[in-house]
Amino acid sequence: MRTRALAIRIIRQFVRDKRTLALLFLAPLLVLTLMHFVFNGQHVKPHIGMAGIPPKMYDSLKIEGADLTSYPGIPEAEQALKDGNLDAVFSIVNGQPSILLEGSDPSVSQAVMLVLQKSLQANMKSIQPNISYLHGSSDLSSFDSFGPVLIGFFSFFFVFLLAGVAFLRERTTGTLERLLATPIRRSEVVGGYLLGFGVFTLLQASLIAWYSISVLGMYMVGAVGLVLLVNLLLTLTALTLGTLLSSYASSEFQIIQFIPIVIVPQVFFSGLFNLNAMQPWLQKLSTIMPLYYGADAMRGIMIRGETFSDIQLDIYVLLGFSIVFALLNVLALKKQRAI
């Protein structure tokens, strides 16, 4: 009854605050759309200068997917590279091919190498393997690969901010004190917040998932229901963590200060970057980061089509995080009221 009254109040406040609604629902879509265009754009066509290559050989090289410019000698080509007109210089001296890369952007260097290696392989007439994929396909773009992580991250981030600020405001405006002067239990306060925000986070999770998959065409082979479940659990964790930490902030600005401490490190451990290259003891840090589990499950469902039994560990851990944070919340409220 009291929990429900609190949830209804939170929903009413939300509905009247159009700007916050927009932050919750439109901001993630905007950022995802931008990400989509940045990472799903046309492949970069590298610009390669050809120096000292006889015209006959030129044709047989069959270099595809690059803009080629011919230079009479290596010094001219190298000058063009220095001037920033080329990404690489390809030359053959005494039958020995050599490549000089501009080198300041690894992704461009990689593109150059890919183009040239393809051409050299084709010339060597070596055995060509048949390539097939267990998960995904040759069309799987980097947006498809870390899209699931992004869906989880944006839900987490925006809910964390909103819940933290909302609970803080309840305290700084004196309404929390007033609220605690009624016979409401501390657990009912936390429950009301979970329920009221839960409605919006569920809507948000559904909207983000639908938009990413149906509008942006993100790669998705798993069950939509599972995506929603994982996303909801992730936002519940964000909600409980946000309200818990807001007990230790005295202004909105101090909530913002939690972002580099609590949110940013989670991004590094969320699977956007390969953790295997990291020191083993540092890798262990990922086990305390909610986003790691959420991202792992989201990726599993969307790219590898994993089912509930494959991701149940992630689900239980997220549930555990939420429960622990919620209980700590109930305890932290003791600071505001003795009983």
Partner: peptide
């Protein structure tokens, strides 16, 4: 209890504030 600061939800109407506290009681 009436606190020193007006602990009211500014975004809501007076009726919604009253409904909320009435339900808590």
């Amino acid at each position: 209890y009436m606190a020193q600061s007006d602990a009211l939800y500014q975004e809501l109407t007076a009726r919604q504030n009253l409904l909320f506290f009435a339900s808590l009681y």
